[in-house]
Write a protein that binds this DNA or RNA. Sequence first.
DNA 1: AAAGCGGGGGC
DNA 2: GCCCCAGCTTT
Length: 281
Amino acid sequence: MIAWFADAGRDLPWRHPEASAWSILVSEVMLQQTPVVRVLPRWLDWMDRWPAPADLAVAPTAEVLRAWDRLGYPRRALRLQECARAIVAEHGGEVPRGEDALSALPGIGEYTAAAVTAFAHHGRAVVLDTNVRRVLARTVDGAALPPRSLTAAERRTAARVLPAEPARSVAWNQAVMELGALVCTAASPRCEECPLAGPACAWYTAGRPPAPEGSRRVQAFEGTDRQLRGKIMALLRANDTAHEKELLALDADDPLRVRRCAASLVADGLAAADGTGLRLP
DNA sequence: AAAGCGGGGGC
DNA sequence: GCCCCAGCTTT
């Protein structure tokens, strides 16, 4: 798998040796639930503008939200700025080492703390993202897909198969994640390209049995508050402000819903009240 | 453990 | 139209 990665792995800027720990942390936050191809241009622009935590810490939040653009889940942008401020205030402007210290930062959870430890600090950490979980579910458990939410059993499995030697564990984490992203994909895995196709993969050996019916249920999006919040944020990014009339026009049939979403954006710190309308914070 | 939280691209 | 994407936070 590590040999496969050396040959087939993508050349991504946050994987370059000169990438700072902060730039790697930023990439990990942007990549939370967002595909690489969509992150790439935003990350380049972001790191150009705010190369260090101290730069982002003092940036106007409205500008931060505009730079986040349409990466989705804009609360991540707020958390990232809070994270930068915490790093400046509590860690002298340097990304702290250790998963506990990292997890204590805003917007940094179990996965991101492990990923920063592995990829920025080259330490041994159990990195369990959606790709790693799927590869382990297939190779170790012979299942088409991992459980819906991360289980203790998955953590045990991952800890057991992770190489003991730190440098090798980093290479392993990088390789298995990339294998899941490029080859061992959720919908149509390319087993013919996979270095593990054969006895190394329990699922392949079992004849690639399908996942149980209805084991996945995606969140609805059309017509949800999430979608309307997104539309409101798009207005604010474009114009800085949105008048009440523009907001209500986003869902002419349900002014209550518009007000509810506007209020929730204010509560989240993503927008501020501006007369009867909204503006970026 | 489940729900809420964006947005876009692949099939 | 459905499914998925380098998850986190709150309930």
